[in-house]
């Protein structure tokens, strides 16, 4: 028995058309979650099936694909998804942010500023920003229809009352083009400002929840906040230990069992290209010679 031959990028053409129609609607109504008939993929729900279906539907033979998870090209799930597209679409892949035309991501936006010819595809676990306030789809749909987002502000303000801070550090809700409150997927709020006025098209795919949404290029994306408690990004009080970058998002690496820690860029391509250009961090001095 021979293995069945799959279509370019795995999905059959009818499925792609259905997803493509949803993508066009998503772009036309920024931040609105378009329902789509998500298919079972050969990888588990919750592992990027939404992102994979979106990528498979937009990908052409001339595209160059980059896949990251937690900012890194070498995390296991990123490797697995990249291999999937190498096998089923035969497209060129890269780890270089600027060389890619399509970037599929989980939990990060690259540090390098994205360009107009690029598309950023997010994997989304729970697309509904109101889901944890109201579990019912019938209710949240009404709230979006009426732009009734008071509940979200109440929740954020309760955080301030209890903790002195808005306690949401990732999947921090944003208002897109002044109309829809949107979940940016579990990216750290550090990345939220990159979504605003971004030159690249941003597409979001939630496979298990069967929703697609989008932010067109150069769209206003505002993180929800209050006059007396403005939105603040997470800041790191040290540079990357390897490349010395200030102001990039850092992973904490546990060095031993006595509390030693080092902090390195989560965006591996950003960190490596800085090191190639001679930048060095405090724990990487000997290698500079």
């Amino acid at each position: 028995m021979t293995a069945p031959a799959y279509n370019f990028a795995y999905l059959d053409e009818q499925t792609k058309r259905m997803i493509r129609r949803a993508i066009l609607k998503a772009i036309a109504v920024p931040g609105y979650q378009v329902p789509f008939a998500s298919r079972e993929m050969p990888m588990p729900y919750g592992w990027g099936t939404g992102g994979v279906q979106v990528t498979a539907s937009i990908l052409g033979q001339k595209d160059v694909l980059k896949v990251i998870d937690q900012g890194a090209d070498d995390t296991t799930n990123a490797v697995s998804i990249r291999q999937f597209f190498e096998k089923t679409a035969g497209v060129e892949t890269t780890t270089e942010t600027l060389a890619a035309t399509v970037i599929q991501t989980r939990h990060r936006i690259p540090e390098t500023t994205l360009q107009g010819h690029q598309v950023l595809v997010y994997q989304v676990p729970i697309p509904e920003p109101l889901r944890f306030l109201e579990p019912r789809e019938t209710e949240t749909r009404k709230m979006h229809a009426l732009a009734e987002y008071g509940l979200m502000h109440v929740k954020l303000y309760e955080d301030i009352a209890r903790h002195g801070h808005i306690a949401t550090t990732y999947a921090y809700p944003v208002l897109v083009a002044g109309r829809y409150v949107m979940d940016p997927s579990p990216t750290p709020k550090f990345d939220n400002p990159k979504m605003d006025d971004c030159a690249a098209l941003q597409l979001f795919g939630a496979g298990r929840e069967k929703r697609i949404y989008a932010i067109p290029p150069h769209t206003k994306v505002v993180s929800l906040d209050f006059e007396d408690h403005p939105f603040e990004v997470t800041r790191f009080d040290r540079p990357c230990a390897l490349c010395g970058a200030q102001g990039s998002y850092l992973d904490e690496v546990v060095m031993d069992d006595r509390g030693a820690r080092m902090f390195v860029c989560s965006d591996t391509d950003f960190c490596e290209s800085r090191q190639e250009n001679g930048h060095r961090g405090p724990l990487n001095q000997e290698a500079a010679e």
């Binding site: 792609k16 493509r20 772009i27 052409g60 098209l201 067109p216 290029p217």
Partner: peptide, 20 residues
């Protein structure tokens, strides 16, 4: 070429709607 031609038609429409 049904696969490549449809991708071209869609992708152009997508770019066009994303850049009105």
């Amino acid at each position: 070429n049904p696969v490549a031609d449809a991708q071209y038609g869609f992708r152009t429409a997508m770019d066009a709607l994303a850049r009105p």
